[in-house]
Design a protein around this nucleic acid. Structure first.
Length: 255
DNA sequence: AATGACCCCAACCGCACATTA
DNA sequence: ATAATGTGCGGTTGGGGTCAT
């Protein structure tokens, strides 16, 4: 006889699933995700539960737009550490690695594109004032939609904008997806070469304005079925007496 | 108003590493 | 010592929302 297992659920979480997960994390702590996935009755994988908790349900999360300070810090830290999103996230209280990663991809790319345009325009007008933008193969390679309202600055050149309505958008999109290109572009636009992420790394060297992220963690009492691993202990700074008002005490944020 | 293009972000995947049995 | 299991991380994808035409 074949045991038919309930199919593992995927995709967006419902309000009810969220409540169930919160309830069980409160009971068992935010570790043993496979266990939580099983006992909660959620037909989700442990990984999925962990991700939902860390990226969405965690009480310490900060929602909303990145502040200019946060943006600056992300840029600074990324120049030091590269795509070490989780490490960068630890320096931004309430922000997740996923959030920073997404932010970087969307916002930094736009910023880079905008910079590239100004550089190309400057180069174009300097090197060859006779040729039009449409003659310039480099300008053909520019993204077709750079003048959206949320761009970091206004390109402000209607002739160029018109010339940028390029036909082969598919090719551009694929090119844009290459993360390495983005880093190269950023390095170029900043006028400095890319350096290995670890080269300048010191844990102390990044105290800009944010204090070390202190994620709330769970008390592991003697009676608790869970024990914190050495690795995990290292991940969290000591926090005293969270037991009484775990959620209420979680507030940081900013400077 | 309809449609297509694009952006944002939640969620997934695969891999690597740590821990446990 | 090692296989199995659990967790963390970086990269990628897909769907919904928004904007431009």
């Amino acid at each position: 006889m074949k045991i038919v297992q309930d199919e593992i659920r995927r995709g967006p979480w419902t309000e009810q699933e969220d409540q169930q997960l919160i309830c069980h994390v409160n009971l068992y702590g935010d570790r043993r995700w496979d266990f939580i996935a099983k006992v909660s009755g959620l037909n989700r994988t442990g990984k999925s539960c962990r991700l939902r908790w860390l990226n969405y349900l965690h009480p310490g999360l900060k929602r909303g737009k990145m502040t200019p300070q946060e943006e600056k810090l992300v840029i600074e830290l990324h120049s030091k550490w590269g795509n070490r999103w989780s490490r960068i996230a630890r320096k931004l209280p309430g922000r997740t690695d996923n959030e920073i990663k997404n932010y970087w991809r969307s916002h930094m790319r736009k910023k880079t594109q905008a910079k590239k345009i100004t550089m190309l325009l400057a180069a174009s007008s300097f090197s060859n004032s006779r040729s039009s933008a449409s003659d310039n193969p480099k300008l053909h390679a520019l993204p077709s939609k750079v003048s959206r309202g949320d761009l970091f600055f206004d390109v402000g050149c209607p002739q160029i904008s018109a010339s940028m309505e390029i036909k082969n958008k598919e090719r551009e999109r694929k090119a844009e997806n290459a993360m390495d290109d983005i880093w190269q572009e950023i390095a170029l636009s900043e006028g400095k070469p890319i350096t290995p992420a670890n080269e300048f790394y010191t844990e102390d060297g990044c105290n800009f304005f944010s204090p070390e992220l202190t994620w709330p963690t769970w008390e592991y009492s003697a009676g608790s079925p869970w024990k914190m691993h050495n690795r995990e202990q290292k991940m969290f700074l000591p926090i005293t007496d969270l037991s009484s008002s775990y959620y209420e005490d979680i507030e940081y944020f900013g400077g």
